[in-house]
């Protein structure tokens, strides 16, 4: 693959993909904090948001470290889709599906 295209794809994966996945995982983290640690909704949302930044960080680094760019992009898209589809199970906190 052309080097510039590779860099462009990795950047999109890191920035947009990373942000999308961490935004979605913030729902799941909030759900875990709400049920496991019995936090109030607002507190669980704060904890969930704070935890998601580490996910973004890891995904950003990974986007520039992995060997196969296209496979990684496909993985991120699939992963985001699964997280998005399963979202009604964890949101809103007080009465999910």
């Amino acid at each position: 693959m052309n080097n510039n295209v590779d860099i462009a794809l990795r950047s999109i994966a890191a920035i947009l993909g990373g942000y999308a996945v961490s935004a979605l995982t913030s729902f799941y983290f909030a759900f875990i904090f709400f049920h496991t640690f019995k936090q109030q909704e607002g507190v669980a949302i704060l904890s969930g948001s704070m935890a998601s930044y580490f996910v973004f960080f890891a995904l950003f680094i990974a986007s520039f470290a992995i060997k196969r760019t296209l496979k990684w992009c496909a993985f991120l898209i699939a992963f985001s889709a699964i997280l998005a589809l399963a979202l009604p199970l964890v949101s809103p906190l007080s009465n999910p599906l």
Binding site: A23, S26, F27, I45, G48, S49, S91, P92, L93, S94
Partner: peptide, 11 residues
């Protein structure tokens, strides 16, 4: 929360 407001907005 401002940078990731989605859970706050949903709840």
């Amino acid at each position: 929360i401002m940078y990731l407001p989605y859970t706050a907005n949903a709840n």
